[in-house]
Design a protein around this nucleic acid. Structure first.
Lengths: 340, 340
DNA sequence: ATTTAGCACTCATTAGATAAGAGTGCTAAC
DNA sequence: GTTAGCACTCTTATCTAATGAGTGCTAAAT
């Protein structure tokens, strides 16, 4: 169990290091006004903290740097609730106050705000389509052999896909097909669409000429095959500002992860409720071993809807960042809930 | 006027430098099999080439490096037609052979192919909407106070925007409005849409109740206000591989340009027909002073439709890259033309 | 009149050597 | 328990050769 003085010393070291990115020496600590002990005393405490694994030296006579265990302890026990500046709150509120009515827009702006305010890289996943239902399905012929299929959800999301129409299918066939599908599928949750298509609709279609069947195959391929991940990344270049990433090799490996959207999406999707902080090695992904990832979920009703995350160096402004993410994920939840 | 031998020396220097990124010395040149002179002779020629401004030293006793004037001369006069490897051609053909039917898809894939094959950063602008016409306009009510407007062009492009519907407007109002608009505007080129809306339609609408007018204002705002630039960038991280960008500061300033899509779009839009190479200072943009930008246009009929570009270090594989861009822009033109 | 061999000279890069400074760990005194 | 004092360690910066790649020039060879 750490003594109060050890807690204080650890706190000061981490706070200072977060700002300076430089190893912290005993003298620097003893000079802080909340500390009233000599540097020699601090040195003794530091030696103990090092033995316990909370801090490290970069070389035998250097100041101390937080270890991952140190960060972990800091995040779990030393984080005082942070008072966001009214400037920060203003920026966020200002973003949300103009009436946005589209998922994408809201999420994209959120990602931007978050990365701008923190100077880290923001990643937002979702929203997932649990509650979204089919509002309308439509096929519009463009020419004899091409058409575009459009799917609209009750959330205002529009999915579309062009496809080429085989010669044996008439535009009227497509029209009838769409009518049938609309009859049957409107208000069906998107997530069940695939299943419903198989069970209910294909029977129905089989009673008609086989033209419908082919047309249906095409339509299915066009609209439902790939549900691309919706991932929004903001402030990619902020990484370049961090002194811990002055090494091009590190940047490269980190960027190559960020570009792999599906990997990243899986990572965020696996998050459970609430705010979670992964520090360094706690991250499964190799290239993130020098990073911290903070994730929070936003919800619609009691349903988890998506994840909002921030990627930065281990030396993160945890306190402020967690508050910001908190505010923002709540704001997201509130906004989406207000729509339905 | 340069002698044949000077041309040869210049060519070898640039070719070598493009591959090694290292200053080229006289001995290395004299060893090349196409060169049959001693290093001393080469040195004399190099001194002349330097006086003429085609090559430079990095310091007083270093080998030579091409100057921008040298690159310019190389591109203008020394570029032998490059035989693309069949591997390269295969990759490109393979990309285009599966029946893609959507602008976006084609352009996106092209950007990816181009950056993958070259290891530079590809930027594709467009396609512009000269020839595209309105195919269908639609408004779908999502709830009492929100709706989504969808615009479909004859090219299969779908534009959509959610908006909130003021209380005084009824869903039926919207329906009527859309019917009127569809009657009048289908097959009107997108580019004239704005104008036509003002001249023809607003008169028409004014004869009805003013509800239409408000609804129309909303619709206009939702659909036509901002025509976002369609810019596709591939291989952003390839920049990190280039030895000339080992300086974080340079990377940062270059990325900050790439992120400013509108600036970039303006840059590409200003391109005239054919292939154009901008080397270093020839680029207007400060952050690109160490880069070369190669642009080509693709066309629909005789109409310039968009621009395809490649951004890399001045030390670019001009020959190969230009051939690739050529093939790809032709392929783009061919694909689009085959659709209409 | 070219071309080339030879050589002095320049400059970047590297390695070692030294000095300064920051910070520690330990001991002994308070 | 706390602190002053001091030896010790390691980093960083600066300096000095030493090395080597490459040039420019001169004089000889073709």
């Amino acid at each position: 169990m750490l003594s109060n003085r050890q807690l204080l010393v650890l706190q000061v070291i981490i706070d200072e290091f977060i700002h300076s990115a430089q190893p912290i020496g005993s003298r620097a600590i003893s000079k802080k006004e909340e500390v009233s002990f000599s540097s020699a005393t601090i040195r003794n405490e530091m030696a103990d903290l090092e033995d316990l694994g909370y801090i490290e030296k970069t070389h035998s006579s250097s100041g101390r740097v937080p270890s991952e265990k140190g960060y972990r302890f800091y995040v779990d026990h030393l984080l005082s609730p942070f008072h966001l500046s009214s400037a920060d709150l203003n920026v966020i509120n200002h973003t949300f106050e103009k009436g946005m009515v589209e998922f994408e827009q809201v999420v994209q702006k959120s990602a931007k705000v978050l990365s701008d305010l923190t100077n880290y890289t923001s990643i937002i996943l979702g929203p997932e389509v649990f509650e979204t239902k089919l509002k309308k399905l439509q096929i519009i012929s463009l020419s004899d052999h091409t058409a575009v299929a459009i799917l609209v959800t009750n959330t205002g999301h529009v999915e579309h896909r062009s496809f080429s129409v085989p010669a044996q299918i008439q535009p009227t066939d497509l029209e009838k097909l769409v009518n049938i599908l609309n009859d049957r599928l409107v208000d069906v949750p998107i997530i069940q669409l695939h299943e419903k298509l198989h069970t209910e609709v294909s029977d129905l279609l089989n009673t008609y000429t086989n033209n419908y069947d082919t047309a249906y195959q095409y339509l299915k391929a066009a609209l439902f095959e790939e549900q691309p991940v919706k991932l929004y990344v903001g402030g990619k270049t902020n990484i370049l500002m961090q002194p811990e990433f002055k090494d091009i090799e590190k940047i490269r490996s980190l960027y190559s992860i960020i570009e792999k959207e599906d990997k990243l999406a899986d990572l965020l999707r696996s998050t459970s409720d609430g705010i979670k902080v992964s520090i360094g090695q706690e991250n499964k992904i190799d290239a993130m071993q020098d990073c911290s990832l903070i994730t929070a979920t936003y919800t619609l009703g009691d349903r988890q809807m998506g994840t909002i995350a921030l990627l930065g160096p281990k030396r993160m402004e945890y306190s402020r960042v967690i508050s910001l993410i908190n505010v923002l994920s709540n704001q997201l939840s509130r906004t989406f809930n207000s729509w339905y």
